[in-house]
């Protein structure tokens, strides 16, 4: 029997192709979720205007956002090989590097989120914080700049959401990731995840319906962007066409179409649409599906993007 062995067992000869794992996928998911939360917080702050009447879920969302982003950045920290060197991100700014952009965006988003907590967090939490004098002063300053905070929130939300996709797209060596649709796709997914989370937290029926409607739009946009992602790859260069085969019969077909498209987008979209038309009453399971789908989207894209390289999905050292 003819047996062809390609021995590539020498350490360091082949580039390490699979270097990002669940932690990066988890960070991208949480980052996108926070981006969506910032978007909706800003939107509702603008909508409420002088009345200052915000849905309860939005108030709690403002509390959750810094915690979720903190958890996401902790995952990113876990991914670092040289953990003690984390401060070096903040000694330089390279405008050509999305990594550098990201680390600065993340740092700048935190003050904004803290101001939002002081402004709109539920009274039980706010009263704890405002007792401290500087916080009280900051809160009164922010109160005057309500609309500025709202607009900033929308802008940073969109920037953060797009950035999580561009971070992947910047790597030309990974054909699956190099797509202009990835940034908007992750943004739409982040917004839909945030709408689902807020719908999950909301008790008021009218406000809940508002978030459900927002989720239907965001999920619809996500579906369209997934389509754009496929069209973009299918009409691009040979290596893009081969990379997208991972989702068209290749190793990631079932996770992508099953978990991401059907479970995470199509099924919740259908059920929420039916709910808005008064045909069914959906439970907490539907927003949970949207969140699971959002996590699955990041996980599948991160994993498949690294598989689409030399040798397709075959592990490098063992392929014959």
């Amino acid at each position: 029997m003819t047996e062809t062995l390609v021995l590539r067992t020498n350490e360091g000869i082949d580039p390490q192709l699979h270097i990002w794992g669940w932690d990066v996928a988890g960070y991208l998911f949480l980052g996108g979720l926070v981006a969506g939360l910032l978007f909706f917080i800003g939107l509702h702050m603008r909508r409420s205007g002088a009345r200052r009447a915000l849905p309860t879920s939005v108030r709690w969302g403002a509390v959750a956002a810094p915690l979720l982003l903190g958890a996401g950045m902790f995952l990113l920290f876990l991914d670092l090989d040289l953990k003690l060197h984390v401060w070096r991100f903040y000694t330089a700014f390279r405008w050509t590097s999305p990594m550098s952009w990201g680390s600065w965006i993340l740092l700048l988003v935190f003050p904004l989120m803290l101001v939002q907590v002081l402004l709109i967090a539920p009274e039980s939490i706010r009263s704890l914080l405002v007792r401290a004098a500087p916080a009280s002063w900051a809160a009164s300053m922010a109160e005057r700049g309500w609309n500025v905070v709202a607009s900033l929130s929308i802008l940073t939300g969109v920037a953060l959401g797009i950035y999580t996709g561009i971070l992947l797209g910047a790597s030309v060596a990974r054909p699956l990731w190099s797509s202009a649709a990835l940034g908007p796709l992750f943004l739409a997914s982040g917004i839909s995840g945030a709408a689902a989370l807020l719908a999950l937290l909301e008790r008021d029926h009218a406000a809940r319906a508002w978030f459900t409607r927002a989720d239907v739009w965001a999920l619809g946009a996500e579906l369209a962007l997934i389509g754009a992602f496929f069209v973009g790859h299918a009409t691009s260069t040979r290596c893009h066409i081969e990379a997208i085969q991972l989702f068209l019969g290749g190793a990631y077909t079932a996770p992508f179409w099953g978990l991401v498209v059907v479970v995470g987008v199509a099924a919740p979209l259908l059920l929420e649409w039916l709910e808005l038309r008064g045909r069914v009453v959906v439970s907490a399971a539907v927003p949970v599906l949207v969140l699971v789908g959002g996590l699955a989207l990041r996980y599948v894209i991160v994993a498949a993007g690294q598989a689409a390289g030399v040798g397709g999905d075959a592990p490098l050292n063992t392929f014959f």
């Binding site: 019969g249 077909t253 079932a254 099953g258 059907v262 479970v263």
Partner: peptide, 12 residues
């Protein structure tokens, strides 16, 4: 069908 497609159809 291949396994991947079958999994997907099972889900549907």
């Amino acid at each position: 069908f291949g396994d991947e497609i079958v999994l997907f159809i099972q889900l549907l």
